[in-house]
């Protein structure tokens, strides 16, 4: 682990949505979407967050940028706890933290031209003279593979891939230190997807940002990230360096996910671990380990006791009773 202070450190972050209000507007029922997540991002990391739909990964992404307010926990960004900032202070922080959204058809204002869209972060933070702004716009458009002539067009004139490039250009024009990508390629055609992933990879090298990459696609994460976390029902169940996670998955859920990735070769025999049942409703989460209802190794203990999220190897954390028992004797 590097000695530098981490860029972002999440400690026990909880986020919930109110699903029912009383007559007076007080919350009666809540759904926990993010349930005690702790993560650390070092400079230059690209942390992939994978999980089924509804596991809280997008909520986590929004929580980190406080587009959704966390219920409890701390989020230390370079020494500042984001949860303690007021709206205006948080707004200023956004200069350094940007986000790329999932649906490029929905995340661009249809009444702004491409130029206005890409310029908007500069306008918001009053950066540069008109001439400098134009230079920055030209530069970032070139970097993201957009033609200069597109500037006066409207978003509806573009394809999904190009729109997503516009979204990326908008997020990158301030050269932010930290970016959240919320499933940036899942709304796109497969053919465009790889182009965009390559673009992101290049941009990461060029601009040196730290990022979180939300995805439900393990192969995408494997391609582009250097760390990966697996989420299940609002919990991070396993976190490791990419190589470690893909080669040596410890949590039964991770193992099941990995075994479900289709292989390009034929004739290779492998053991499929098919998960039984559906992901439980977050409205009514199971007691104990959230995964016990579908886990092939579940024991009585799993039904009663929530496993701790513990370090089980170098840069490898996992929340599973079985892992814990297995390694308890070895002093790790």
């Amino acid at each position: 682990m590097s000695q530098e202070t981490p860029i972002l450190q999440l400690e026990d972050v909880h986020t919930s949505y109110v699903t029912e209000k009383s007559m007076l507007g007080k919350p009666v029922k809540k759904v926990s979407a993010v349930n005690g997540v702790s993560l650390t991002l070092e400079k230059g990391d690209m942390l992939g967050i994978v999980g089924e739909s509804g596991c809280g990964k997008s909520t986590l992404a929004r929580t980190v940028l406080r587009l959704v307010e966390p219920e409890s926990g701390t989020m230390i960004y370079k020494g500042t706890d984001l949860t303690t900032l007021d709206r205006e202070q948080m707004r200023k922080m956004r200069q350094k933290m940007q986000m790329v959204f999932q649906d490029p058809y929905a995340s661009l204002n249809p009444r702004m031209t491409v130029r206005e869209i890409i310029e908007s972060p500069l306008r918001v933070f009053q950066i540069g003279t008109p001439k400098e702004r134009q230079e920055k716009i030209d530069e970032i458009m070139e970097l993201t593979g957009l033609k200069k002539e597109f500037q006066n067009r409207y978003p509806h004139e573009f394809s999904g891939g190009q729109r997503q490039r516009i979204v990326i250009a908008r997020a990158l024009i301030l050269k932010p230190e930290f970016i959240v990508f919320d499933e940036p390629v899942s709304a796109l055609d497969v053919s465009v997807r790889s182009q965009l992933l390559n673009l992101l990879d290049d941009l990461k090298k060029e601009l040196q940002f730290t990022s979180m990459f939300i995805s439900h696609d393990l192969s995408v994460v494997k391609y582009i990230c250097n760390k990966a976390a697996v989420m299940y029902l609002g919990h991070v169940v396993e976190l490791a360096d990419k190589k470690e996670l893909y080669e040596n998955p410890r949590h039964p859920y991770t193992q099941a996910l990995l075994s479900a990735i289709p292989l390009p070769q034929t004739g290779v025999k492998r053991t499929h671990q098919v998960l039984q049942g559906e992901i439980p409703s977050p409205l009514n989460p199971p007691a104990g380990c959230p995964f016990h209802t579908r886990c092939p190794y579940a024991t009585v203990r799993c039904c009663q006791e929530m496993p701790k999220f513990e370090q089980i190897g170098e840069n490898h954390w996992c929340a599973c009773h079985h892992e814990y028992t297995k390694y308890a004797g070895q002093g790790i």
Binding site: F101, V124, R170
Partner: peptide
Amino acid sequence: EKEYVEAARAIGEKDRS
């Protein structure tokens, strides 16, 4: 509720803007 409004908040736009 449109995503571009959320995106506007994410880039730091003020409420009035």
